[in-house]
């Protein structure tokens, strides 16, 4: 299983586009990419997960670790493009309350809050 992580920098925002499935096998790839930038002071990071269909708790662990490290360095993390399954995962775990999350526009209407 493959995972692609593309990094774009726009107006001082680090924009990551993640493509593929995030599980125990692919999570290390993502972790490596994110760890490289997480120490930057006042990092503004945006993670686009609109092309991630599946993620397990290992993937969640990567985002939690990234969120904690960025926050500790005065930065901000935003996650966008979650499909229904992923946004349920962020809601059940309570992470949607602490991480800045933007849902896929097309799926906003069936979100239960």
């Amino acid at each position: 299983m493959n995972l692609q992580v593309e990094l774009l920098e726009q107006d001082s925002i680090q924009y990551f586009k993640v493509i593929g499935e995030i599980d125990a096998f692919t999570a290390p790839i993502l972790r490596e990419r994110l760890t490289a930038v997480e120490g930057t002071p006042n990092l503004q990071a945006e993670l686009d997960l609109s092309e991630v269909d599946y993620m397990d708790s290992t993937g969640l662990g990567v985002f939690v670790g990234f969120y904690k490290a960025v926050k500790a360095n005065g930065g901000h993390v935003k996650i966008t493009g979650l499909n229904r399954r992923l946004s349920r995962l962020f809601e059940i775990t309570g992470l949607s309350e602490i991480i800045d999350i933007e849902k896929k526009e097309s799926e906003d209407h069936d979100a239960t809050i």
Binding site: K68, G94, L95
Partner: peptide
């Protein structure tokens, strides 16, 4: 029941 994962922050 709402509640954050354990081990992320205190005062949840």
């Amino acid at each position: 029941a709402k509640g954050l994962l354990l081990g992320i922050k205190t005062d949840v």
